[in-house]
Design a protein around this nucleic acid. Sequence first.
RNA 1: GCGCUCGUGGUGGAACUGGUAGACACGCAGGAUUUAGGUUCCUGUGCCUCACGGCAUGCGGGUUCGAGUCCCGCCGAGCGCACCA
Length: 987
Amino acid sequence: MNDTTIPPHRYTAELASRIEAHWQERWEQEGTFRSVNPAGPFAEPDHPRLRGGDGDDDHLFVMDMFPYPSGTGLHVGHPLGFIATDTYCRFQRTTGRNVLHTMGFDAFGLPAEQYAVQTGQHPRTTTERNMEVYRAQLRRLGMGHELRRSFATIDPDYYRWTQWIFLQIYDSWYDEDAPSRSAAGGAGRARPISELVAEFAAGSRPLPGEHAGRAWADLTRVEQADVLDRYRLAYLSAAPVNWCPGLGTVLSNEEVTSEGRSERGNFPVFRRNLSQWMMRITAYADRLVDDLDRLDWPTKVTTMQRNWIGRSTGATVRFPVPRADSSEAAGSGGEAAIEVFTTRPDTLFGATFMVLAPEHPLVEEIVPAAWPEGTREAWTGGAATPAEAVAGYQREASTKSDVERQADARTKTGVFTGAFATNPATGQQVPVFVADYVLMGYGTGAIMAVPGQDQRDWDYATAFDLPIVRTVQPPADHPEDEAFTGEGPAINSSNEEISLDGLGVDDAKARIIGWLQDRGLGRETVTYRLRDWLFSRQRYWGEPFPIVWDEDGVAHPVPEDQLPVELPDVPDYSPRTYDPQDAGSAPEAPLARANDWVEVELDLGDGPRRYRRETNTMPNWAGSCWYHLRYLDPANDQALVDPEVERYWIGPRQQPVAGAPEGAVDPGGVDLYIGGVEHAVLHLLYARFWHKVLFDLGHVSSEEPFRRLINQGMIEAYVYRDARGFPVPAAEVEEHTDPAGGPSTFTWQGEPVTQEQGKIGKSLKNVVTPDEICADYGADTFRVYEMSMGPLEQYRPWETRAVVGSYRFLQRLWRNVVDEETGELVVTEEPMDEVTERLVHRTVEGVRHDYEGLRVNTAVAKMIELNNHLTKLDAVPRAAVEPLVQMVAPVAPHLGEELWSRLGHERSLAYEPFPAADPALLVDETVTCVIQVRGKVRDRIEVPADITEDELRERALATERITELLGGVEPRKVIVRAPKLVNVVPG
RNA sequence: GCGCUCGUGGUGGAACUGGUAGACACGCAGGAUUUAGGUUCCUGUGCCUCACGGCAUGCGGGUUCGAGUCCCGCCGAGCGCACCA
């Protein structure tokens, strides 16, 4: 590049970088982006921005999903959401709001640990270094974050409170009957476990299960602990869990893909019985579903949460079945019952067989010694006895991986158990099968099969030649060979006591449930797909549990005043991982090796005694479950957040959110939360759960953490592949445009390559970093480009060569204020001409609306239009360019500040009120009216903006072109929308 | 298979409650500056046609004076769920 040809004061990348560094320094020194708290350690109750009063609109809390400081660095896709929130917040500050916007780091967890293991360094070392890199990159991009509120989940001051919240959850139970604390009403809330103990001790609540009838005080310590574990919201469970040998840890259901592999690393996951910490999130299933209505979230995310929770209402029905004589179970020879869950109890009369999951415990008890008379060959699986057939099938099912099961999904397999159950409605004997299309993990692990109204049952019935009875009348055009799952009148559904015939599905359901309940044969039931959250990990890099164990194996919480339980520095922090396929391996927590830390002497109220520390750690979701609360009051060492501060920032508001149903109550929460859709059922579900527990226990006034959520789209990039399909370096590809106007073709090293759109990443050879773009154009250009690419929610491809468009815009703006040769101000103090003035006001109005609606792309387009107009003037009036500088400042903050200061203002424009549009100048005196004939534009006329309908009609019909087109015929109809449109329908 | 979202120039995208389709930007073409390239600036640019004019928002219907926008049916793409009883 030849510098001599470039004017010395041109807005180049070098000048932009100098300006940017200057303002970043100044913002930091002046604490420009500090927001004001009403109480707590940051309290400034007299600050004017608090304005007194309790206005819902004078403050705003905006959050990005906080980043994971990865070692691989940022690419241009990462900062998209950050730039959007920063732009939004900068705009909101100029409207006078007290804006809270900061950013911390989600720094515990597997990737950080894996990176450390790979590079042979301690996770804390690598994580802290990565955070420094990250902070520098964010600063380089001009983020207006409030730095004093930033923290990382690995800070002991922070995880002290993560542990504290864990203890709150551990020390509570869910009382279904207690009145809700919510203004929305309802029942059910978490209560302290001490209140449960008090009820047990007083005898006002009966002890559960095998302890029924005994007095609380008579139970041993171990028995008491065991009882309480059945109630606690955080509890130890020995249920089957997801064991992932390849990662050396157990995982939550949410971290396992539908293919039965780990979401991270894609390793196989096995079901193992292991004793693990669980969170009783299922107690909140209903509220987690119902409260989605009160949130302003993308429907995509709310449906994903609804699907994941999987609430379905129906009935459980008991089908009597004889116990087999050969069964070794107690009470053999007697009567057992198969309990099924169905969402269609109205079809009970059509239940012609039953199916148990292979793992169903009742299977062993009902299998008779021999096949009943006349059992069909196809039902036996070729086995001599039912026991042999069932055992064979169970073996087969157990060895099938989830992937294989899925591959066989549509082929129905199974065997007859030899047993018959009684359909309680028809009294008929129905055969009982074992088949793997019924899953043990859902409902009761058994179904009544209703082939007439369920396609899966129909397929099974057809495969095994079982009877099919339709109990809902299908419409005439319904195919003969398919189940009918739709709405229709019940048929074939009566016995001596009850008839459903003729009733619609809902009425039939209600009547049969009533009948079943009266007879003690069943009851209305709600089931959920959601399972309790597996909360422990066998990993080093996570929050230690604040739990110790005594010699009887009873757990004790570490007293609050001894928190945090700090993660010890150990020489060997790597997890014990195994061959990914080694299902028989067992987890081993790295902390268990730290003997000096594990063995501890504590005084928990009965004198100093020896304890063993819990050696599992928390999953990385723990830290992100509540960081929104800590941003509010990060320096508070008395509470996780001061209640007044919490109420001020995220307490419930007067108005429910947009789109909430009639009568909904605002749940409170962060005003705007922006992040990727990948957290739809992980972080966002867990955080909601924790927040609700804290609400129930009275620690927060808000019922939900995030009132409004937006998923930013991903920035992708073009991927180019050679003839073999391998990606080639995108930066080296040459484009060849088609002179005829057709699509371009592409070559790499002379060879043709194909273009597609894909994720940015090393493996696709299309990485572009913000650092390169900042070096070539400056951070402001980068920000403007990212915001101009399209709507925030949309996926779009990165195109480096298009960045220059945003660069030219800022350069032109600069040139409208500063002389490129001399650096002198070039603005004139002369007043604006009328056209310019009207354009300025229209732009102000439009840009304000666009910023409010987070449509930065169209805001930028409007500013470019104004700027292009100013460029054409002989001299740029100060009165026109000052509002433009203010408008551009949220997206291009450094350039905004610099021009503002060169225009003679001393103070930062961060809080300078956004320009106001004069309504009188928004309407033009004359407008162009289009005249259509049959909806097609045929002519245009200039008319006064306040023209009357009649006059407009007259003038439109009188134009030369329209009279010509009408050819003297009287129009049949004339639609007038004054002043902009007339549509003529000829006779 | 089911559900949701979405299909607009060579490209990214505009178009508020139905009312001038293609704002703004990239690219491309021509021109100015420059010894030249690059930078910067100016002009043009949906398609067809010499033109008058016609055709255009995935395809086919419908509602309406008027449809990118609303309704129905296809086709295509993306995401989610996937034997959930």
